[in-house]
């Protein structure tokens, strides 16, 4: 990856020696395992099926700075037999980096960077183990294509964690329209009286005959009080924890300067099923450098612990947002 922020040798050694000091020090006064303030809002794009905006490390006085990412999902209907649809639906993730986030990068470097992010995110989120069950519409006929688009509006370090948080929030917010299968049956020419489409009683077939399962050709959208139902298994969407590693210390949520001074990082994505223990969905070792095998295991278990904390905090916020946008909005509407 191209050097996104360039720092001088002395700046670099300043950050590095401060990290090695006892107790370790960071530029903004945080401890090693402290996160910057995370701001999150869902439902920011009215034309999307689900959306979220996240900002990590916004400067409270000026209101500028911080890593800012916009995520939105959009559902499309696909045909399975003739189109590129897959039975049971599919997920496609795309990450776009705004040139405003990387004003110094050339267009080619920007394309490479967003391709990098896209691959990582797509590989993790489109894995079969996370696939939501309600993305199919008609078996072998129609299915939903879930497009998840992320836009990196500004980068102040720790893009991976922010990306996964934004993706999780947007997917959590996604509502899948409820569909109902519709079937048209032609009248039998032999029968004298008109046969109702549901009451198809033929003499030759018994009611227990299940060999001819009616296969619906089309679907419609029933009138429903809400935009739809939430994605199945939405608590499963993974979160990423990036540990930045410098000699014997590792730290969380690096700013871009710290990323430049300590380029080796380990990104691990965890899913937290409610019934079983957390599962690792991805591990990436990024940047130049090497790591002892034994250390990797301790780092992974550390990352899992941080991931659990992040998950709990995000969960509270997401439920809060859900409440704000649904219950409170409905109450306000009722009281008008």
């Amino acid at each position: 990856m191209a050097n996104l922020t360039s720092i001088s040798k002395s700046e670099k050694s300043y950050i590095q020696t401060a990290l090695e000091a006892v107790p370790p020090l960071r530029e903004d006064g945080r401890a090693l395992y402290d996160f910057r303030a995370v701001l999150l809002a869902t439902g920011v794009a009215p034309l999307a099926n689900g959306s979220a905006r996240i900002n990590i490390g916004k400067n409270p006085e000026e209101g500028a700075g911080g890593t800012e990412i916009l995520a939105a999902t959009k559902l499309e209907v696909e045909t399975v037999d003739s189109g590129d649809g897959v039975d049971g639906g599919r997920i496609v993730c795309t990450v776009t980096c705004s040139p405003a986030a990387y004003p110094l990068l050339s267009m080619n470097a920007l394309d490479e960077l967003q391709y990098d992010y896209t691959t990582t995110l797509h590989q993790v989120l489109s894995h079969p183990s996370l696939h939501p069950r309600n993305l199919g519409i008609l078996p072998r006929k129609k299915s939903w294509l879930l497009n998840l688009d992320l836009v990196v509006l500004s980068d102040a370090g720790n893009v991976y964690d922010a990306m996964f948080m934004a993706a999780r929030a947007a997917l959590w917010d996604t509502k899948v329209p409820i569909t109902r299968a519709v079937q048209y049956t032609a009248k039998k020419s032999s029968s004298s009286k008109p046969v109702d489409e549901k009451m198809d009683t033929d003499e030759s077939s018994s009611g227990f005959d299940t060999r001819q399962i009616p296969s619906a050709q089309d679907f419609d959208l029933p009138d429903y009080w809400d935009e739809g139902e939430v994605l199945g298994g939405r608590e499963l969407w993974p979160l990423a924890v990036t540990l930045n590693i410098h000699s014997s210390v590792h730290f969380l949520d690096a700013t871009s300067k710290e990323e430049a001074a300590a380029p080796l990082k380990m990104m691990a994505a965890f899913a937290f099923p409610s019934t079983s223990s957390p599962t690792i969905q991805a591990v990436r070792l990024l940047g130049p450098g090497e790591l002892q095998h034994a250390r990797l295991q301790t780092l992974l278990s550390e990352a899992e612990r941080f991931g659990q904390e992040m998950y709990d905090a995000l969960e509270i916020k997401l439920r809060d947002e859900d409440f704000r946008r649904n219950h409170k909005a409905r109450n306000r509407f009722a009281q008008r």
């Binding site: 794009a45 034309l47 916009l70 939105a72 999902t73 795309t94 776009t96 705004s98 040139p99 688009d149």
Partner: peptide, 8 residues
Amino acid sequence: GIMPFSTG
């Protein structure tokens, strides 16, 4: 840059 989710 036109956001892919900016239209219907």
